[in-house]
Design a protein around this nucleic acid. Structure first.
Lengths: 178, 178
DNA sequence: TTGAGCATGTAACACGTTACATGATTTC
DNA sequence: GAAATCATGTAACGTGTTACATGCTCAA
């Protein structure tokens, strides 16, 4: 139930935010960590409110609903963080495809790995831009947000280096076999 | 539809394998790349066969069904690899939690990051064991399997280094604020 | 006044997880 | 003959995606 806790956590960290605000946070700050769609977010807000973990603190123009955590909600967030362990769910289509690159001509495999390197580089740039666009001095998530961002940067750099290394491996093999 | 292509790809690469064999391959070789459950695998095999991308090559004892790809199946695998791009779906509960570590006492946050470092190290060891247990000389996936494995090893190493760096950051901050 | 952006919600479908259910073969 | 392992399948439920549907407010 990570989406539930992602939404709950954001309501705790960003008080007074609405579903619409959350949507932007997911699209920008959490884009590389936990994706969520608009319908998931609104759905989860309704469930969290029904379960008494968050509540509508105020209503604004255009039907805007600003949420705040309840005490039960804060407790649940802490419980999740301290009494449960994250599970590692691994699904990486980019790497999955590598297993099957033997089914396509060598030059196609090389194209693929080159594209992977480019993608990783673009992802790295995206994170640098994000780093510059956020107002860290104001942000309650400043300390741990920076730590998560650093992970993203290292991840993208590693991925790019790996793809470039992989290219050298495939090219060496192409020479051998002709 | 990555699961579909993961199953199809394995039927192409490992001819004569059954659902049961596939299950083991997913649990061992693909554990860090694409998880799948038994019910997903059997379900997908049925759909792939119904769509004419694979077929039952022979039946063994205990109801065992050995599959082989059809020409349409091989074509579809190549089409997937060359004409579509992998999409990056990012969901990492371990990193998600980092965003909310400000909600728990500093020493709990440190415990969490320490556990992350230990987990990454264990994952690295698991991949080393896998590397030693596979018979690379016989394996049709040898070349690209090795490249994927190298990714896993770099990923785990990077993750461990990051968690250890994160710990130093949090510890420095603890000193400052008391 | 019109368009951009704010703001919420639902319905249908696809994908993934857990648990249940069954039975054959081999090995000790 | 009992246990381990091989082997397949389904049902119920939970999560995630896509598309649809609606309406308000503010600024140019």
């Amino acid at each position: 139930m990570s989406l539930r806790h992602a939404v709950l956590g954001l309501i705790v960290e960003v008080p007074g935010c609405s579903g619409y605000d959350l949507l932007k946070i997911f699209d920008i700050s959490l884009a590389h960590v936990w994706q969520a769609t608009q319908s998931q977010i609104y759905g989860e807000l309704g469930k969290l409110a029904a379960d008494g973990l968050i509540e509508i603190a105020s209503e604004g123009p255009r039907g805007r609903k600003e949420y705040a955590p309840t005490e039960a909600g804060r407790d649940e967030l802490r419980r999740w963080l301290t009494e449960t362990s994250p599970r590692r769910v691994t699904r990486d289509e980019g790497i999955l495809r590598v297993f099957f690159l033997g089914s396509v001509p060598h030059d196609r495999a090389r194209d693929y790995l080159r594209a992977q390197a480019v993608e990783a580089d673009a992802g790295h740039d995206e994170l640098i831009d994000l780093e510059h666009s956020l107002d860290w001095s104001q942000d309650t998530m400043a300390e741990f947000g920076r730590i998560a961002l650093e992970f993203g940067k290292r991840y993208m750099a590693m991925r790019q280096e790996w793809a470039e290394w992989a290219l050298t491996q495939v090219e060496a093999r192409s020479q051998e076999t002709g």
